[in-house]
Design a binder for these strands. Structure first.
Lengths: 244, 244
DNA sequence: CCAAAAGTGTTTCGTATACACCCATGT
DNA sequence: ACATGGGTGTATACGAAACACTTTTGG
C-alpha cells in the first residue's frame, strides 16, 4: 500500500496569539514510547503534506484541526532544508515510527499564523490535550530545528508588523487603543509614548471609534475601536511604516 | 542506477541586473527536439536539487555556472507548489526528457539574485549560448509558472528595496548618485526629486564621496561614491524606509 | 476614598516637499 | 558654441518626540 503522504515535504506552523499582554505560541506536546523507553517531545503543529496537496491547504488543515477556526491568516515566511535537520537519530525515529514511512530528507515550508485565542474552539480535543499556549520567551527545547523556525518566524513577524496591518489579526473585532499599543510594544520590543501613539491612530481614518465602551472593568472604561479594512484598502499609499 | 537528483524539489533563480537604465532578468533559451518536433522554450535558470544538497548551494551552483561570479547575493522569496504547475503535458515532457526521471510533482523554491552584469564572465559558455538578458517589461511567455515567479520576485524586490541597502548589489563599487537614483526610480516605479534625493544621501555617512570623478563622458563628469558597509552596519537603527 | 487604567495639549525640532537655474566637459 | 547630464539652496509645512496631570469607573 502506498502511503497518502509525500515523505519529502512538510509544513510547519508558528501560531501566534496574544494572551494577557504576552505573545504566545501554540505547541504540541506528545508522549512517545519506543521499546518501553518513554520520551516527551514538544513540537510545532505541522505535518508531512498529503500527495498532491497544496502547501497552503496542508497548513489550513493543521490549523483547523487544532483551533476549530476558519479563515485563518497564514503567511509563508521560510523554508528549512538543512539535510541534517532531522537529527538526532532518536528524533528521526519518532518521525518514522509515527508515519510508518521511510524518511530520507524532509524540506519543510514554514508559515506563521496570527489568531485571537478567544476565538478558538475551547473544547477542541486538540486544545484540551496536546496543544498548549506557551509565551514566546519561555519556549522549551523543541524537536528538530523547531526552535529556529520559531525564532525566524518571530523575526519575520516583527518586520512585517512595521508595514502591514497585522495587529488586527491578533485583536478582537472591538478593541481599545491601549490594547493595540500593548501588542505593538511587545512585538516590536520597545515602548511607545501613549499620547503620540493616540495622535497617530487618530490620523488613520480606518481605525474607527465605535459608539461603545468597555464594560465590567474596575476603572475608567475605554473607548472601543474597530478596523475598517475597506477604508484601509482604498488608500493605495505605500505603507512604509504602518503605525510606527 | 539511482539518479543523483531529488525529483521532488527544485530551485529557480530570478537574476536581476541593471543594464542601460533598465532592470533585466537573465533567461535561458533552449531548443528541444521530441520525435522530430522542434520547440523553443524559455525558462528561468534553475534545476532539480541534488540529493542531500542544501537549496542555497543549488542556487549558487546554478548562478556560478551561468555567470562565473562568486559571492552572489541571493534571497529566497517564495515557494511555488501548485500541484498542476508543471502543466501543460508537453512542458512536463520536456522535463522528463531532459532529466530522464519519472516526475510526479515538483515544489520549487525561488530565489532572486542581484548582480552587476559588468562583473559577469563575458565569455562563460552559458552566457554566450543559452543565457540572455531580457528587460523585465519584455519577458516573453515562459515555461511552467516561471512568469509568475518573476512577477512575485519583482514584487519582493520592490518591497525589500525600500528597507534594505540592496541597490549596491546592482551597482559597481564606484558609482554616481544619478546612477543610484535611476535604479531606485526604475525599481520603485516613480521618479524622485533630484535635489531632495541628494540631500537624503548626504545625510547617510555610509555613502561616501571618493576623491575621484567619472572619466570619458562628454559632459560634466560626476562625483563617484562608494558604499561603506561597515559604517552602515554600525548603525543598528531600524531601517524602515531606506532612502525613500 | 482609593486603586487602576483612560485620556488629553503644547512646544520644539527635524525632515519632506516643491521648485529653476548654472556648471563642467567633450565634440 | 552647443549638447549633455551634473550639481546646487531656500521657504513652507507637517509629523516626530518629549513631557505630566486629570478623569472615570468599581470596589
Amino acid at each position: 500500500m502506498v502511503s497518502q503522504f509525500n515523505p519529502h515535504i512538510s509544513v510547519d506552523c508558528v501560531i501566534f496569539g496574544f494572551i494577557r499582554d504576552r505573545l504566545n505560541v501554540l505547541l504540541i506536546h506528545r508522549e512517545h514510547d519506543r521499546n518501553g523507553k518513554k520520551s516527551h517531545i514538544v513540537k510545532l503543529p505541522g505535518n508531512l503534506i498529503i500527495r498532491g496537496e497544496p502547501l497552503h491547504s496542508s497548513a489550513i488543515r493543521t490549523l483547523t484541526e487544532l483551533t476549530g477556526l476558519k479563515n485563518i491568516f497564514l503567511k509563508q515566511f521560510g523554508v528549512f532544508d538543512d539535510p541534517h535537520r532531522l537529527e538526532p537519530e532518536e528524533d528521526l525515529q519518532w518521525l518514522t515510527d509515527t508515519t510508518s514511512m521511510q524518511i530520507e530528507r524532509v524540506v519543510t515550508i514554514a508559515y506563521y499564523s496570527l489568531i485571537n485565542p478567544d476565538h478558538t474552539e475551547k473544547h477542541s480535543p486538540a486544545l484540551l490535550n496536546e496543544a498548549k499556549w506557551v509565551p514566546v520567551d519561555k519556549v522549551p527545547e523543541l524537536i528538530f530545528d523547531h526552535n529556529q523556525i520559531i525564532n525566524e518566524g518571530l523575526l519575520a513577524l516583527q518586520k512585517e508588523f512595521l508595514t502591514e496591518p497585522l495587529c488586527f489579526k491578533l485583536l478582537p473585532v472591538k478593541f481599545t487603543l491601549n490594547h493595540l499599543q500593548k501588542i505593538y510594544e511587545f512585538i516590536l520590543g520597545f515602548s511607545l509614548d501613549n499620547r503620540n501613539f493616540r495622535k497617530r491612530i487618530n490620523r488613520m481614518n480606518y481605525i474607527v471609534p465605535l459608539h461603545e465602551r468597555q464594560t465590567g472593568v474596575s476603572h475608567k472604561p475605554a473607548q472601543l475601536y474597530s478596523f475598517d479594512e475597506e477604508k484601509f484598502n482604498e488608500l493605495d499609499v505605500q505603507h512604509t511604516g504602518f503605525i510606527v
